[in-house]
Design a binder for these strands. Structure first.
Lengths: 261, 261
DNA sequence: GAGTGGTCTAGACCACTTT
DNA sequence: AAGTGGTCTAGACCACTCT
């Protein structure tokens, strides 16, 4: 009953509750309609102007409600085209205890993978890179940055930095960085990751094809060789709506779990 | 030179670049001023009306720029009081391989900890709770929800669900849920966590004292007893700007968790 | 060209904090 | 009482997409 979608808005002012701001009430109305299945993934909403007219509120107010839902991942907007219910995103699970390669990981799931190169070259290292990778100032750093795409959905931006000694020719990296490293006997066996959440900025959101401000996962990874040497320093940004990281926790030392007030 | 802060805006239109939207240019100006230390944490910005006047743009446009920065965690606004540069937040690190207690974790860092109860009681289980906890429909579920606060900063919302068999009296839970469980010999020894990013909703952002829409971490945890039985199912929401989760990855680990059939 | 979202304006009133 | 952010209006023009 997609035709009924319009009724959500024509009856809006009557069902209004005095207290809450209009844009929050409208937001809730739309959210409810989506959750109750009145409008499903891919369905178009009426235009902002239509909603404003039917609900008898200004377009600015409609826009505020819609924008909130876009940032929350409920709706998507396409300039010049319209506003739609966001497609159901099947989340990709990734283990946080096994060191795997993106390419190999996705292949195992039967997903098509491609990458778009953002950067591949040798540079003078930043102070941070010198510190982490243990470079001296006259050495070079190899930077490899790419947009990871699975099933035609951009999932992550990966920016890796390695010593030029282990990757003298960054342009030679094909689909998998780890595969390239392995041929030189430099595949990492251990890594430490730091995960946090942040709202995506202009640039990142454009690459990941989501609205600016939606939540993403920032991941910093430092990878080690069996010898204990740092081999790779990677900063990645993952789409928050597409990724589930899975970790297993164990009680390492018995007896340290009980809280004390 | 805090007095110079006003000049950021009075010279705004002259330094404007034709192409980009005004609110993005203004956003960048403010962001730069913060990054260059022209205005530091805690400093007040001019009022939205003042900025609009000095920059010769409308208040709505100023507001859009400022709101973006608030959602990005750069600024904070206090209703009736003003707009300020956000205080530097020292992030809390949490291991993703050890099953630890929030209270003890914070104490080890020398931070004061308290909790605010949001819910403590017995309920009819949801279908999901029945599934995960292995309850039948005539059994009850114990729900324990609280807001975790460290150094007077709310950090996380924890909503735990357990079988009423192991927690017949949720109101008896004091500071630590695990301590209560331990007295009944029901201490979990292993857990699987699922981590993703999402923009915080109205309710959650109010509790965590951040603007609606800022990025947060959603964590689902299922805890197991030594016997392998599920004991606890917890949904938590962490502030994205306050938490760093740290995980260690290894090449081939026998105990794999993220894999599916 | 018609319709859509994206940006912008110049006001207005309300709710809240500070003095 | 004065000043602040929070909400809301009724327009306008631009950039883009669809057909």
């Amino acid at each position: 009953m997609i035709e009924d979608a319009g009724q959500i808005f024509s009856t809006f002012k009557q069902t209004a509750q005095g207290g809450a701001p209009l844009y929050l009430q409208l937001k809730k109305s739309i959210e409810d309609a989506v959750n109750r299945g009145l409008i499903g993934p891919g369905d178009a909403l009426p235009s902002e102007r239509d909603i404003a007219l039917k609900a008898d509120i200004s377009r600015v107010t409609v826009r505020k409600a819609v924008q909130d839902l876009v940032k929350g991942g409920v709706l998507v907007q396409r300039h010049g085209s319209g506003t739609f219910v966001a497609p159901r995103m099947e989340r990709v699970e990734q283990s946080l205890s096994r060191l795997t390669s993106f390419t190999e990981d996705m292949a195992r799931r039967g997903m098509s993978v491609r990458s778009q190169w953002l950067d591949r070259g040798l540079y003078a290292p930043s102070p941070e890179e010198m510190m982490v990778l243990g470079l001296s100032s006259n050495e070079l750093v190899a930077r490899v940055a790419r947009l990871r795409i699975a099933n035609d959905t951009p999932l992550a931006i990966e920016r890796a930095a390695l010593s030029a000694r282990v990757l003298p020719d960054p342009a030679a990296v094909a689909a998998s960085l780890y595969a390239t490293l392995q041929t030189g006997g430099n595949r990492p066996v251990r890594a430490v990751q730091r995960i946090s959440a942040a709202n995506l900025g202009e640039e990142d959101s454009r690459l990941l094809e989501v609205a600016p401000g939606v939540a993403g996962l920032h991941i910093e990874r430092i990878s080690y060789l069996a010898s204990g040497k740092v081999i790779e320093f990677t900063r990645s940004i993952y789409r928050g709506d597409a990724y589930d990281f899975v970790a297993e926790l164990r009680l390492s030392e018995p007896g340290n779990i009980g809280d004390r007030p």
